[in-house]
Design a protein around this nucleic acid. Structure first.
Lengths: 293, 293
DNA sequence: CTATAGTATTCATTTTTGGAGAATGATAGT
DNA sequence: ACTATCATTCTCCAAAAATGAATACTATAG
């Protein structure tokens, strides 16, 4: 059983057919057929059910698949680990929530790049749920997510403490004013896409204000959201630092239980401590103390 | 990078030379040389330092080795997982302390074999330290060890509670008699080989009796140990159930703090729950209740 | 200083494996 | 019945891996 066989197997399983798998693997149908057959012969049982519209996994195939993917991921990691001589370099993929990327990371990333110019850092923003999944499957080396997170495969360190504030248009000077001037069904809640932790918190806050079923409106970007709030399209919940001295909107302090949220930096537990990631964590520690307050 | 390359690499690393690795792998030197060279070319760095007496790992090699071994172990496990259709069958390797194997396991194993005759169970006895290492590296599927055990990669369930007793020759009727009739340096302590938990407990007990530096004598088998005690060669510490109604020796009750020990059944956390092991655990649960008292 | 035993490497050769491409067969939808 | 879409099978060829023999290196013993 060779790794290439397992990669082939995984592609067939994921794409549901030999033709599609062959296409993705840049080879021909017959070749994939043979590799799958060889694997089935070695294990001694069928891995796929064949039908006219492709192939689907059998029980044995379903049991094998996680091993195949795991081993493929390990082989990629192994090469990087062997090449990692202690000098931070090479690619480093970091994920972050939109809000953290906007206000916390610029200084951190600049510092990191100054200290470790040989690392090719890439940053992608997404929701906490996506980020956790991404770190687990190796898509990200590390990510900034909203706590709390408990997972046996993840290491988490406190990166920043944020205070969430309710953000409204200028015309609402106070929370009681907002409540008085809003219809019974509540204001429109401007939220990030599914999986965002702040979204859940906002729904909880609105619920406590007596607006359990407020209209929701999904936006993908931070700027878009603040713009919509400024135009009094609705309200949203953001870290105070994100809104800063932005005078197109008003911010309203919430009680601590509702407002406190911790941003964690999570990494996967691996056999090897990668230098680039360690360097990043080191930067985070330095920087964190300064701006976490 | 194929699995066979990694297995070859691992063999060279472990055996410290291409000739020895080729021999173990049933192939020729030149082949091993080529595989290693191919791996080094792919990773882009040397994995071994060559010298006249063989090869030793470089830093990169040391970083790669755990991945290679891990992947090899995963590939073996993957085949078993794929073949495991829910019906307990195939090989099952269980480890145990000598004492547990002697008094607790016969009934359990008989029951297990009655219920799951298709499983080829193999039992090996060793010390707790060995057993833990064996379970972690896949040599054992599960093992009976002396608690407590805390390890992120292991699941542990309480299997049996034992009461340790001091075992002496017939002529010592009481502990005070033993103390009075023994020279100041204390009796000879008959112990299992290094790594046995009971051994540490015995040394602790003798120390509390005022014999901190008693002579030690290592034995490999339970019968040998009881025989030596009967011949008044020394004393030892064993679970009460092991000695049973053996009238060639006397047993002396200790205070609970010294006497209590828990036998745990430990298994490795794996991607797949193996049926044979689950069946074993099920038997253990049934049986445990009856005789754990 | 040389002989020897043990080691890794190199190279030419054979064997095995893997991939390409075309033909075949099977199934579902029209 | 016709077509589109699959998977399988077969043959051919090239690439990769294994082999076996020759070479070179380095300690150690005599």
């Amino acid at each position: 059983m060779e790794l290439s066989d397992l990669v082939t197997f995984s592609a067939v399983a994921r794409l549901g057919g030999i033709t599609r798998a062959a296409d993705e693997l840049n080879t021909v149908q017959s070749n994939v057929t043979q590799r799958v057959k060889a694997l089935e012969a070695e294990i001694g049982t069928a891995l796929f059910e064949r039908h006219s519209r492709g192939m689907t996994l059998t029980g044995a195939g379903r049991r094998l698949l996680p091993y195949a993917d795991r081993m493929a991921a390990l082989s990629r990691e192994a090469v990087l680990a062997a090449r990692d001589d202690g000098e931070p370099k090479g690619p480093l993929s970091i994920g972050s929530m939109e809000t953290t990327a906007a206000v916390r990371l610029p200084a951190l990333l600049a510092e990191f790049h100054r200290r470790f110019p040989a690392v090719q850092l890439s940053l992608r923003t997404s929701t906490t749920a996506d980020l956790v999944a991404g770190v687990l499957n190796g898509k990200f080396d590390g990510a900034f997510v909203a706590g709390p997170i408990e997972h046996a495969e993840l290491d988490a360190t406190l990166a920043f403490r944020e205070e969430l504030v309710l953000v409204t248009a200028r015309r609402w000077q106070t929370l009681s004013g907002l409540r008085a001037g809003t219809p019974g069904s509540g204001p429109t809640a401007l939220v990030f896409r599914i999986g965002c932790t702040y979204r859940q918190r906002l729904e909880q806050v609105l619920s406590e204000f007596g607006w359990p079923s407020a209209t929701r409106f999904e936006l993908g970007t931070l700027d878009g959201m603040i713009g919509c709030v400024a135009a009094d399209m609705g309200v949203t919940l953001l870290p105070r630092a994100v809104v800063g001295r932005n005078d197109t909107v008003n911010v309203h302090t919430l009680n601590p239980a509702q407002a406190r949220v911790e941003t964690l930096f999570i990494t996967r537990r691996t056999a090897h401590q990668f230098s680039a990631l360690q360097g990043f964590a080191a930067c985070l520690e330095n920087n964190g103390e300064v701006i976490a307050a």
